[in-house]
Write a protein that binds this DNA or RNA. Structure first.
Length: 584
RNA sequence: GCUUCCAUAGUUCAAUGGAUAGAACAAAUCUCUCCUAAAGAUUAGAUCCGAGUUCGAUUCUCGGUGGAAGUACCA
């Protein structure tokens, strides 16, 4: 629709003023509700060409459009330099048919790898991880919908001092406790020992009046060294405990609806990273200090110096990321690499990009750091030490329970079997959580208040799900009256009201929104779009009846309209990783 | 100290340089013999401060103020 207007305006300007304008100079936007018309052309950019006032220019172009494409533009008005166009009903009905038309797919699908989640194996996932996982999963679906092949990947930070702390605490005070014996989820069990280590270590430090360097910490370090040497006892313990954690993570991932195509483990990549750094050192890209540590000098790039290997030869975060990147590009013909990692790592990825480039990886320069903001509590950041961490499993469970209770209070599940009621509650509870997180611009920090439960009314996931369920309900009823709708003899065109037109207009925007979301890596655009479409539909639903429309032609048109809305909502919410219930 | 990011109703969030800055929650009021009231409608309420760029700035630039993150042998 817009394309037709844009090219017609280009022709108009060529004819009227003899000048060429580029398509992007023609600004077409939806007409604001308070004015008459559907689409608006902004005339200001053309005033230099027309050399007349905004009003005259608008009038001239409007007049031209009305004459040259009368099937499309039936009327116009000009207000303060904005040319408002009235578009014909037939055009809108046509447009409705094209809403879900698949976009032309290019033959070559670039391969995009998206890394997200990336947990440590010493504690369960919390709300910050939830944001990461939801963003990563949604971004993957969006990028895929935009015509790319996507590989979802995860790097598990399974080695290092952190897991040694949990291992040591378990060894000392665990009495052989297992997930089975304790009934605890594996990741929570390990998390408890991590906390226990921290507590015991603090007690020890306080008792000794020493700082960080307690006997307990030294023991943990020794364990790490033994791990690196491949000590079978330590390795065995490590494997057993990590497996407990993975089982726990898998449950959480499954609950969140998140999955990966390929998982990497730091324990399998850090040595490669080390090798690459040492090779870089040989090639003179890096330098060694007197204490044996290896560094990269980034001062020429406006940054500082970066540690790559500790003086004891062990590797750091950056080393591992270099190794992982190398393995990934060996495994897949990646065209683009996207890292979904919090904005606290902005500096890290700036450096990683430069280092990879220096090491000769052509893709290093173009890596994308999808940098999202922190989830904060009303009092500030979540702190595990202060026990203010919002646990992912608890949160998901609470959301589903809330959804179930709300549904019962509204006596929605009177004729619904318990099993289905539970399934609906799962979809709705998760829908509320996911929408709550994804509707916010990923780059910004967001606030979560554990005191107030996430809403089910207003601008929420359940609001959209509810509207979808209502449309599905109408469709089920319509099927029952299909004889009435079948081969109808009264062919003709429906006369549309303004609500219907603005709904179609909204529907037409869908493909563009997906494209933009993919280009800007911004799932919140889709969330906000789905909300606006839903709101628009609810107003229509309230004001006009679909099943008892005045004429058969109109009824069929409205059914198509409602069906299209439900399809777009289903697809849009899918891109957010949100499931839609057929009824609720 | 230095670097980066952020600042919009009481609160949580929107707004490719475009018209009178949109929603939701919370508050007040109305609508279920009507396709599901998890809905719809009405009322009240905001761009941190100061310059600049231009037909036009919440948006771009500069300078303040306030907040967050990072700043290398933690990941």
């Amino acid at each position: 629709m817009e394309k037709i207007i844009i090219s017609a305006v280009q022709t108009a300007i060529k004819t009227l003023y003899g000048a060429d304008v580029e398509a992007r100079q023609v600004q077409v936007q939806n007409t604001r509700a308070e004015f008459q018309g559907h689409l608006t052309v902004v005339t200001f950019p053309f005033l230099r060409i027309s050399r007349t006032g905004a009003e005259q220019t608008g009038e001239a172009i409007g007049e031209y459009l009305k004459r040259s494409i009368p099937d499309v533009v039936t009327d116009f008005n000009v207000i303060k330099g904005f040319l408002n166009l009235v578009i014909s009903d037939r055009c809108w009905v046509n447009a409705l048919g094209n809403v879900m038309a698949p976009a032309a797919t290019s033959e070559e699908k670039p391969l995009v790898m998206i890394e997200f989640s990336s947990p440590n194996t010493n504690k369960p996932l919390h709300l910050g991880h939830v944001r990461n996982n939801l963003l990563g999963e949604s971004l993957s679906r969006i990028v895929k919908a935009c015509g790319n092949d996507v590989v979802k990947t995860n790097i598990v930070n399974d080695r290092g001092i952190h897991i040694c702390k949990s291992m040591l605490a378990w060894q000392k005070w665990g009495n052989g406790e297992t997930p089975e014996s304790s009934g605890k989820k594996g990741d929570h069990l390990i998390g408890d020992y991590y906390v226990l280590f921290d507590r015991k270590n603090k007690e020890q430090a306080a008792g000794l009046g020493e700082g960080e360097d307690t006997p307990l910490m030294r023991e943990a370090h020794e364990m790490l060294v033994r791990w690196e040497q491949g000590d079978p006892e330590i390795r065995g313990l490590w494997e057993m405990m990590n497996n407990w954690v993975y089982e726990g993570f898998d449950e959480t991932y499954k609950a969140l609806g998140v999955s990966f195509d390929k998982i990497y483990y730091e324990s399998q990549t850090y040595l490669t990273g080390k090798d690459l750094v040492l090779k870089g050192l040989e090639d003179g890209l890096f330098y060694r200090r007197d204490d044996g540590s290896v560094w990269a000098d980034l001062t020429k790039d406006g940054l500082d110096e970066k540690l790559l290997l500790r003086s004891d030869g062990t590797s750091v975060y950056m080393t591992q990321d270099i190794g992982t990147a190398n393995l990934r590009f060996k495994d897949f013909p990646i065209d683009k690499m996207i890292y979904v990692v919090g904005n606290e790592q902005n500096y890290h990825f700036q450096v990683l990009s430069i280092l990879l480039d220096r090491l000769g990886f052509r893709w290093g320069k173009d890596l994308v750091h999808f940098s999202y903001g922190m989830v904060e509590l009303p009092n500030g950041k979540m702190k595990s030490r202060e026990g203010t961490v919002v646990d992912a499993d608890d949160l998901v469970g609470a959301m589903i329970d809330n959804a179930y209770n709300v549904s019962r209070e509204l006596s929605k599940n009177a004729d619904i079997q318990e099993e289905e009621a539970r399934e609906i509650a799962r979809k709705v509870g998760l829908g509320a959580l996911k929408y709550f997180i994804l509707k916010v611009d990923a780059r910004k920090n967001m606030t979560f208040n554990p005191e107030e439960s996430i809403d089910f009314n207003g601008n929420t996931g359940p609001f959209i799900q509810y509207t979808y369920a209502r449309i599905r309900s109408i469709m089920r009823k319509a099927e029952g009256m299909s004889a009435d709708l079948g081969q109808d003899v009264t062919e003709g065109e429906p006369e549309l009201n303004e609500k219907e037109i603005s709904l179609i207009q909204k529907l037409c925007a869908y493909q563009g929104v997906v494209k933009q979301a993919g280009k800007e890596y911004n799932p919140s655009l889709i969330a906000n779009y789905c909300y606006e479409l839903t709101k628009e539909f609810n107003q229509f639903y309230h004001d006009y009846s679909i099943l008892s429309a005045e004429t058969t032609v109109l009824r069929r048109f409205r059914l198509t309209l409602a069906e299209t809305v439900s399809q777009v909502l289903l697809e849009g919410m899918y891109l957010l990783g949100i499931e839609m219930p057929e009824r609720m």
